[in-house]
Simulated assay, not measured.
Amino acid sequence: MFIKNAWYVAARPEEVMEKPLGRQICGEKMVFYRGKENKVYAVEDFCPHRGAPLSLGFVEDGNLVCGYHGLVMGCDGKTVAMPGQRVRGFPCNKSYSVVEKFGFIWVWPGDQSLASEDQLPELEWADNPEWAYGGGLFHINCDYRLMIDNLMDLTHETYVHSASIGQKEIDEAAPTTRVDGDHVITERHMENIYAPPFWQMALRGNNLADDVPVDRWQICHFFAPSNVHIEVGVAHAGKGGYQADPEHKVSSIVVDFITPETETSHWYFWGMARHFQPDNVELTGQIREGQGKIFSEDLDMLEQQQQNLLRYPDRKLLMLNIDAGGVQARKVIDRLISQEQVNEIAGKDHIPSVTLG
């Protein structure tokens, strides 16, 4: 089950250019394309004529043309034309609310009447010249909630990412978790340690010494429906840690937009927003490459974890103190899904009855 009345990152703008893009989100097959004035639209990826995927078609005069028999679909899901046929009475496709903002294409899988741009997340780093951003996209064959678990408990870094961001001091610093409405925060602070290789590279990129003790922080934020943003960084020890002045630290936000595809797969839009040396294009590329390698290490672990869970569906998993962030995030997801189901039933109950005859 998924939260439907929420914004999800559906694609990066460069994925939707001249050709349509087919993508499954929250169990629904959608096709994204650019119509008139370069605006992005989305409708069901299903031709009402013979069921062909509309994503295999093309765009003409701002409309989506089926690549099988030429049916022309409008941005509102209504059939506009078809060669040699009258289209009056053709069934409508479902259409979706779409917004292109912050360098992403967002889609609202649920009730369009509830969709508002005001409900998009606040991203302090987006469209801000004081920040630099670089990222990528993975398709991962596991439940999207397993990725949320992974990002809300960074203890795994010591073992999965031992050559880049992992270090034994992570195990030794107990995390704390708190909940503020639909927002879950898990944080860990480490003092007077040496930076692991990835952060040594970042220190050098900001013209700071990389061979002296540092204070390190990890502050994980879960936001519904399935976004995790992690404040990370290191500062030269004794300069204030997280609160240190910019000249003594390197700080970033690990950006994770986790978009469910099916019950056992998701789209993972990952990146890092950097609040130092924003104009350094070479550094942005180095960080993107390093981060891509780090996240690819998670991929195999998560996919094999999913297979184990499918193989042993009745085995109960342990819930430890380090799991608190993921546990609380799942509680938020479950609560919001339940609320949607209640609201949907209530809406059906209030539909006025009509007596025929």
Rank of each mutant, 00 (worst) to 15 (best):
L208C: 11
A235I: 08
A202S: 05
A244I: 03
G233P: 02
K239M: 15
H236L: 13
A195I: 01
M201N: 06
W217G: 00
E231Y: 13
I193Q: 06
D211I: 07
N227G: 07
I219E: 08
Q243V: 03
S226D: 04
G205W: 08
A235V: 06
V232K: 09
A209R: 13
R216N: 07
F198Q: 03
H236P: 00
V232D: 04
L203K: 04
G205F: 09
N206G: 11
V234A: 06
V234F: 04
D215Q: 11
V228M: 06
P213G: 03
D210S: 15
F223D: 14
F223H: 14
A244L: 04
D211H: 09
A202L: 11
P197T: 05
A195R: 00
D210T: 10
I230E: 04
R216S: 14
I219D: 11
G233A: 08
P213T: 03
L203Y: 02
I219T: 15
C220T: 14
G233W: 01
W199V: 02
Y194P: 02
F222D: 01
M201P: 03
V212E: 13
F223S: 13
P225N: 11
N227W: 07
P197E: 08
C220Q: 15
G205M: 05
I230W: 06
A224T: 13
G240N: 07
C220K: 08
M201V: 07
C220S: 15
Y242S: 05
V234Q: 00
I230V: 15
N207K: 15
G240H: 08
V234N: 01
S226E: 04
Q218P: 08
A224I: 04
K239S: 15
D210A: 14
V234E: 00
W199Y: 12
G238T: 09
D210I: 02
Y242V: 12
G238Y: 11
A224S: 14
G205S: 10
A195P: 00
F222G: 04
G205K: 06
W199T: 00
V212N: 02
W217Q: 05
Y194E: 11
G233D: 07
L203W: 06
G241H: 06
A224Q: 09
A237V: 09
Q218C: 13
G205T: 08
F223Q: 13
Q200G: 03
N207Q: 15
V212H: 07
D210C: 12
D211T: 10
R204C: 01
C220A: 13
V214R: 00
P197V: 03
F223A: 12
Y242T: 05
G233H: 06
H236C: 09
S226N: 10
D211E: 11
P213L: 01
D211S: 11
N207W: 12
W217L: 01
D211L: 05
C220N: 15
R216E: 12
I193D: 00
I219G: 08
Q243Y: 14
F198N: 06
H229E: 14
